[in-house]
């Protein structure tokens, strides 16, 4: 079986801070990491490979430094890593990104054989759109199963797979044919501590670079110019000023003070 995972390298959103004076993000010193949801997608693919045999490929679109993410993916047990990197992708929105990744995936299929399950994280923590995965699935015209929390049963003979996904009211068990496209939640699995041979193989295996020259990608669908959505402006939300610490001799006195302060708000709501 062949599993293909789409990953993204993102700045660790938890460490990004805001410069309120310039209205920009301070990214300096913020480490680039594999999007956390994508790691669970890799883990899921590697476990299926361990169980059913085959191989795991992974592709990441980004600048040359995204190679680090691919190396890390390989050290988790991925067999083949592809970096999709080209200036023509700069400024791509989700539609243009899903186009580029789809084209890259077709190239990978050419080189490594047909894919049974495509994987991606449910969303990236920098953009939070959750749209690139569905976009790629649509272009491949394969069943899309989002918010997957469990892979219950895989039948390699019948080429079907049973999955559990989150929905607003609870969960659904879905059965689908393969190939299919899954976007996964963190709850899907716990990341395992990879064995040393994986790490050594990752250090030894080069990442293959895909670009507009060695892949059939049409530039007219790529980049800022060919993205339907454009960013008009980016700004930082107004800073919430640090408020007032309420102190007092006793809990009673603190609560009394608090009550006095919020009484006007409670009044507007008709609570008092």
């Amino acid at each position: 079986m062949h599993f293909l995972v789409f990953i993204k390298q993102v700045p660790d959103a938890a460490q990004v801070r805001v410069d309120y004076e310039t209205g920009t993000l301070i990214r300096e010193g913020v480490p680039a990491i594999i999007n956390p949801f994508d790691k669970h997608a890799i883990e899921a693919a590697v476990r299926l490979k361990d169980q059913f045999g085959g191989k795991v490929s992974v592709v990441c679109m980004g600048p040359p430094m995204a190679e680090d993410a691919l190396k890390e993916a390989m050290s988790m047990g991925v067999d083949k890593a592809f970096l999709l990197s080209d200036r023509i992708f700069a400024g791509s929105d989700t539609l243009a990104t899903s186009y580029a990744l789809w084209a890259a995936a077709k190239q990978i299929i050419k080189e490594e054989g047909p894919v049974d399950i495509f994987f991606a994280g449910k969303q990236a923590i920098d953009g939070d759109t959750a749209q690139t995965g569905p976009g790629i699935a649509t272009r491949f015209n394969v069943p899309l199963i989002t918010y997957v929390v469990d892979v219950k049963k895989l039948d390699p003979e019948k080429k079907t797979v049973e999955l559990v996904r989150l929905v607003e009211s609870g969960q659904e068990v879905i059965q689908t044919t393969m190939p299919c496209f899954l976007t996964v939640e963190e709850e899907l699995n716990t990341l395992s501590y990879a064995p040393l041979p994986y790490l050594i193989r990752a250090a030894k295996t080069p990442v293959k670079v895909l670009n507009s020259k060695n892949t059939e990608i049409e530039a007219e669908y790529c980049g800022l110019k060919n993205s339907p959505t454009k960013v008009r402006k980016a700004f930082t939300p107004p800073k919430r000023e640090r408020g007032e610490m309420i102190e007092g001799d006793s809990v009673d006195s603190i609560i009394n003070q608090l009550y006095e302060k919020i009484q006007p708000v409670l009044k507007t709501m008709g609570k008092v």
Binding site: S75, Y193, A194, P195, L196, P197, L199, I200, A203, K204
Partner: peptide
């Protein structure tokens, strides 16, 4: 070759000689 995020836990000694290291990784 460079391997990150791996802790060497002890030297492997055979016949009084250091012949390798044990790491905290499976098959390490």
């Amino acid at each position: 070759l460079l391997i990150n995020e791996t802790v060497v836990t002890e030297p492997i000694i055979e016949n009084g000689k250091v012949v390798g290291v044990r790491t905290d990784r499976p098959q390490g």
